[in-house]
Computed example of a mutant assay.
Amino acid sequence: MTAEPSAELLDRALIEEAAKKSGLLWVRRDGGRDRALWHAWVDQAVVVVGDGGEQPLGDLGTGLDVVVTLRSRDKWGRLVAFRAHTELLAPHSEAWQAAVDELKGKRLNALDHDTIADRWAADAQVLRMVPQGPSVEHPGAMPDVAHAAAPAPTGATTREPIPAALPRLVFGRKRRGAS
């Protein structure tokens, strides 16, 4: 007879599988806004690269406690959220190299794919987010409130109304009876 896996092991397995299968996660500092980031899973932690021409990390840095939310790959809904502690990886360290090797495979549209590690070492930050404790949300323990948020403030605007001809261009002209 085999022993049942503990709740902690099942929780860690859910976090790992969700992180491996999802290409996008949300990170939030206490009291802050959720920030969507692409990521990779390396050595039992989530790693992200940002700034220096990559995704903006904003106020994320080393030594922070954050909440990381992962979605289900098939349904795209919230699957699991967990607390994590951030660590800034030193360029060219062993942990940094392992993270960069995995992240390079996820960064498919980089123009400088062959030299991207050098650019990241010079200009970007590679953060590692290590899960801490049990998940705060998981199947069977999800909050009842909606997680919709107002869009982030931006100066972007629409300059003028859409052209009158656009619907015809998009949906095509109505054809008259076939002759």
Rank of each mutant, 00 (worst) to 15 (best):
S22N: 11
V80W: 13
V80R: 10
V80I: 15
G31D: 09
L60R: 02
K106G: 02
G77S: 09
A40Y: 06
L24C: 07
S22C: 15
R28V: 05
V48F: 01
E94Y: 01
A19S: 15
L79F: 06
S72R: 12
L25S: 08
R107N: 07
Q97R: 12
F82R: 02
K21E: 15
Q55C: 07
W76E: 14
T115F: 05
A84D: 12
A121W: 10
W76F: 11
R28C: 10
S72W: 03
R107Q: 12
G58S: 06
T62F: 00
V47R: 04
A40H: 07
L14M: 14
W41I: 12
A40F: 08
A98T: 02
I15Y: 03
R119K: 13
E16K: 11
V68R: 00
W41L: 12
L88R: 07
D101A: 09
A124S: 15
W120G: 01
D114C: 00
V42Y: 03
L88S: 10
L111G: 15
V68G: 02
L108F: 02
H39A: 11
L88A: 14
L103H: 01
T69W: 08
R73H: 10
K20E: 15
W41Y: 13
F82C: 05
L60V: 04
V49I: 11
L89W: 08
R78V: 13
A90G: 00
L79K: 15
G61N: 04
L111N: 07
L70M: 10
G31W: 03
V49G: 09
K104Q: 13
H92N: 07
V48T: 12
